[in-house]
Write a protein that binds this DNA or RNA. Sequence first.
DNA 1: CTCTAAACGAGACGGTACGTCTGGTCTTATG
DNA 2: CATAAGACCAGACGTACCGTCTCGTTTAGAG
Lengths: 204, 204, 204, 204
Amino acid sequence: MAVRGRPRSEISRRSILETALRLARKQGYARITVDRIAVEAGVGKQTIYRWWPSKAAVVLEALRENARAEIKVPDLGSLQADLEVFLQSTFDVSRNRPGINDLLRALMAEAQHDRGFLQNFRRELIDPRRAVLHSLIERAQTRKEVHKSADVNLYVDVAFGVMWYRLLTGVGTIDNGLAGQLAELLAGAAVGLAKRKAGINQRA
Amino acid sequence: MAVRGRPRSEISRRSILETALRLARKQGYARITVDRIAVEAGVGKQTIYRWWPSKAAVVLEALRENARAEIKVPDLGSLQADLEVFLQSTFDVSRNRPGINDLLRALMAEAQHDRGFLQNFRRELIDPRRAVLHSLIERAQTRKEVHKSADVNLYVDVAFGVMWYRLLTGVGTIDNGLAGQLAELLAGAAVGLAKRKAGINQRA
Amino acid sequence: MAVRGRPRSEISRRSILETALRLARKQGYARITVDRIAVEAGVGKQTIYRWWPSKAAVVLEALRENARAEIKVPDLGSLQADLEVFLQSTFDVSRNRPGINDLLRALMAEAQHDRGFLQNFRRELIDPRRAVLHSLIERAQTRKEVHKSADVNLYVDVAFGVMWYRLLTGVGTIDNGLAGQLAELLAGAAVGLAKRKAGINQRA
Amino acid sequence: MAVRGRPRSEISRRSILETALRLARKQGYARITVDRIAVEAGVGKQTIYRWWPSKAAVVLEALRENARAEIKVPDLGSLQADLEVFLQSTFDVSRNRPGINDLLRALMAEAQHDRGFLQNFRRELIDPRRAVLHSLIERAQTRKEVHKSADVNLYVDVAFGVMWYRLLTGVGTIDNGLAGQLAELLAGAAVGLAKRKAGINQRA
DNA sequence: CTCTAAACGAGACGGTACGTCTGGTCTTATG
DNA sequence: CATAAGACCAGACGTACCGTCTCGTTTAGAG
């Protein structure tokens, strides 16, 4: 049997997402309320709550909708080069869109007092980006550029950890220089490890 | 001229800080309110607002008061060893005190929608910890273990970045294993850099 | 266009008015708070503020709701008799309901530091009672019992003025004796005036 | 034995009374607070509370201090003339001083939720004025202009009742016209009573 | 072409916490 | 002792949001 009743309004959905993003970028995430989104979107409050559990979820979806498939997955043959390009691309996304950084910070904050949203946030934003970086390093592993015993997750954590730490605390900048430094640091560590292991194996 | 008027009550100050910390650890930061702190501390609400701008500021001070001089600054002669001991000590603080991690996460969240509190938070919590790690690495620099051109701040960001990233997202654990991995990674990178630079100099 | 949105809850409205009146009579107007009314009425505080500007307005409406059509408008053919019955009836209302006098005093007090409420208070309580007394005296005027040049408003002011003055200052009692005295005084003055005027006219 | 300790400061007392009156007339009674009086008078809050139980008491004293012996007690040989002059004089006091009416209304309001202040208010303001009017009518009684059985208090209540009623509700004006009307009404009633009684006695 | 059912805009609802304000008391040092 | 200063406890105030609910209306497929 087909779906009964009035179908979900795509117009309302779009209006909500656009209004949420617009308000959040104009006035800051903290100042928007579900009420305001509803009024400005010309939508009933219930229509928001029917489809999203919180304003954070709305903003997250708006962000995701807005930022689809922007991340390059480079494959230049060298881990360091791949890392640098990937990280530059990642850092650029925020830099080119004013207000995006504030939204990311606000969503991370929201995730701290809403376990359910944390899951959502990880699934939609954190984990996909991790996956890209992870695969990028694994590729270097199959090339033997990185030793098979290396903890890929740690390297991923280093890259995103520094980014988020600087984003959240305001300590340091997030720019191409950082991308280069991180690429060098991680590639150095990974390749250095591989060499040491190789040396050990040779001697053995 | 001497201070005029009734002096600030040390008893009330202590009571407020202790009550705030106790409630926050027992029930979670999100569930405490300024009202409840006031009532349970036997204090007027105004007495809280007279000295702190928000409950976040109260909890921050309570945390700081409570955690004075807990961080070991090891000096074992080797960067990697120093790093490992320091990071283990840092990670232990939270692990040994249930509820502390939640408070740290809540405060970091609070800092995201309160610029004033962010400054306070950095000055009281983030920066002091950075300073210790920073000095620890600088010491290795004076020992020539780390090259003088190394970006010490980046290393600090890596250590705390990974810690906070895992704390906030729930990705990965924060334990002695991590301390060891980070110490190895950072020392490897720093020492590797020093050796390469030395090699360049020799060849030159 | 029809009414949009959820309609006002008559249940809440009644509950608020009843609770306000009950609390005010039990504990005195000064001791009730908007918070307590809300809690005891099982209602959100905002629901009170949405419909009334202050607790005084709530109590006023509660009083009015509760005291509808209690005032007798006698028509015995003689001004003095009508006055006496009307005033007795008016004075009785308060005397038979403990707490009402305190409420009236409190509302009159409230009206002194809230211009908006003073208007409301006059429109709902003062003026309707004036109108009855006014019409009663006018009827005597059409009967030629009172001269047409008499200032009816002054007579009304005398009756209610004495009542309120005694109520507010505690000087003297407000009972059937007073009703008789006022009736005699006013009727005497009004009829006396009519006779003098008639005499003048005759002589002319 | 002489009084020990530091004597009460007359400067502070004057400053408090003047400041209270000034603030009350400038901004309205409702807007002044004990705190504000203290600050503006350059006085400690406790100094106010040591000598007065409430801001109403301060304002009452300030008013009384300021308005000493302003009431004429006329003696023109005729009740109606005496009444008219007295009432005109009484009504003039308020009319010539802007803000006084508002203060009187505020004090009457205050007296409604403070039993202690009501006593104070009656003793200092209400009763003295009553006494003057009372004596004025009694004088007419000794002249046989008013019958000895007349209820003098009722006449007093009528005069002040109408005045206060109009003051508090804003119904009608308080001017020389009213003074004349009240004088005529009361004298008419009192003298009419005397004549009727005399007639009865003669016939008897 | 009616009927059923769900989504819709609107906005009132019960709740909770906020940060401010005032009242009246207490605690200093000073005169 | 009284004083100026000002911190203290207490608690009401009116506002802001939250997430739910209750209207009448709209929009689809089912009968």
